[in-house]
Structure formats: structure tokens, C-alpha cells
Amino acid sequence: MSIKSYKDAINEALLQEMKKDENVVIMGEDVAGGAGTNGEQDAWGGVLGVTKGLLGHYGRERVIDTPITETAILGMASGAALTGLRPVAELMFVDFMGVCFDQILNQTAKFRYMFGGKAVTPVTIRTMYGGGLRAASQHSQCLYPMFTHVPGIKVVVPSCAYDAKGLLIQSIRDDDPVIYMEHKNLYDVTQEVPDESYTIPFGEANFTREGKDITFIGMGQTVGICNKVADKLKSEGKSATVLDLRTLSPLDEDSVLEAAEETGRVVIVDESYPRCNIATDLSALICQESFSSLKAPIKMVTPPHTPVPFSPPLEDLYLPSEEKVYNAAKEIL
């Protein structure tokens, strides 16, 4: 056990899985950096240095710098997965999914189904998402509801360093395509993380706070916000349950309902666009299955239905914040 950042935890998971299984290869734009040049090798290690150092261990055969074409990256990774490799493809920003969505939607997600269960596609797609970095509307989206919508893909949104490592190892060992989503703001969040390899199964949400008065449900980055608000409420004499979904597909419906029924007051915090997002989906689930246990309307804290603003004051206003979550809680407490 030692203190590691979210970024280190991801790097360690990749390193350990590459060591354990030689079929694990990574590919993406500048995952090493410097390919085909006379300059510094391993110059980048991914745009924020998450894959730094892997090149030195496993060389260019397994740490593959690709051309700038997302379509080719995902085509290559999915095809390689069909032939027996376990590729981890990096899509720098989830926003770039637009140009390669057909690879995922109609190919990767469908192989197992279309080939009668005989084809497996153990590909992991790592990608960065979320706002707060002043990266404007084409580099700040969440988009996880779009993948959650599609059967045949698993969607993973780790909220902390411990989960980041265990869920990534699980993603790599899983025989289905997995979109593994890393929030830009979480890379430097630290925590005690075991040095050994370990897995966290998909479809098991995690209770990060236990309480009696109100329930917060978060995913990825918003879990930290929920925890902080729960701690603030605690100092005011109200106790809150916080549920971290960990994976959006599969979804741990039992825990969602358990968490909702425990307190009867629910605030869902989701950074993605508000129409047809995870908050609306959970809200429908809770209303359908646990309606009689609700003591107040379900509150959803989400951005407004607009692109992510570039202007810092506007972006701050746009994103779910501790203040917004706290105010939403106060309205139903």
C-alpha cells in the first residue's frame, strides 16, 4: 500500500497487466511520443503523461504511437481484439468519438452478438472527459450517456485512484469492449492504493458515505462533490449516504434502489448534458421501483442544456458544484 494519484494508479494498472499478459498492447496518439523522429523517445506518454514510461518496459511493439486518426485507432484496436490481443486504445478526448463512432456503435459493440457469441472483443478504450479545464466545448464533454445507451459496450467511470486501478485491470481482463473514462480533474487526486494487482467487478456501486437523511448518487468526478457536501451536512447534524456508481453499464440497480430507499430523499449529480443522461435514467428507475419510499421529489444537479462554455466564469456557472448540490439537498431536507 502506498499513496498514489489517479494517474499513477492507471499507469500501474497498465504496467502490471502488460507484464502479466503479453497480449496486452497499448495504442494511441503519442502514448509514447517521438515515433518516427530523431527526437526524444517517450517524449509524451500520452497528452498528460498517463502512459509515460511504458515504452521503456515494453518497446514500440506493444506501445504503439498511431497517426492522428481516431477511426483507425479504434478499427485497429477492435480488429486486434478479435484476433486474440487485448488492446488498450487511447482516445485522447472523448469528444473525438464523433469520427469513430461507427467503429464502436456498429462494429465493436455488435461482434459478439452478430457472430452468435463466438467472437469476443476484449478491447479497452481509455479516454479523457469532463469540464473544468477551460478546454472549451469540443474538449470538455462527458458523453458517457451515449455509450451507456448502446448495448454491447461496458462503460466505466472511476472516481478515485483505488477504483481507477482495480477497474482498469478488470476492463483489460474483460472479454467485452469497455469504454474507460478518466475525468481530467481527477488525475492528481491521491489515495492509498495496493501495490498488488486487484480487480473491481463491474456492476457493483460503492457506498462512500453512510447516512439516514438524504442520498447522493454520483459518478466519476461528481462523487467527490457529493462526499464533500455529505461531510458539510454532517457538521450540520444531517447524515447523508453517497453512492458511487463506478460503472454505468452494467448498472448496479439494486444498490441505486437500496440507497434511495434508505433515506427517501435523493439528489443525483451528473456532469453530462441534462437530456437523456444518467440522472434522468436513475430518476426513472427509482420512481418506477421505489416510488413509495420517496419522501420528496428527486433532485437532479446537472449542467444546463448547452455546450460547455469556454469563458471561465461561465464554465464555473455551468458545472455542478458543491454549492449547487448543497442547495439542492437543502430544498428537500
Binding site: E196, N206, F207
Partner: peptide, 17 residues
Amino acid sequence: ITRDMVNEVLNYKRIDG
């Protein structure tokens, strides 16, 4: 038995080996 205790045991059980 709290959820935390159960989680701690699960975390242990999920380590390779």
C-alpha cells in the same frame, strides 16, 4: 457488520493470488 467492513474484505479478496 457495516458496508465498510464488507468492502474491506472484498477489496482484500480481489487482490491477485
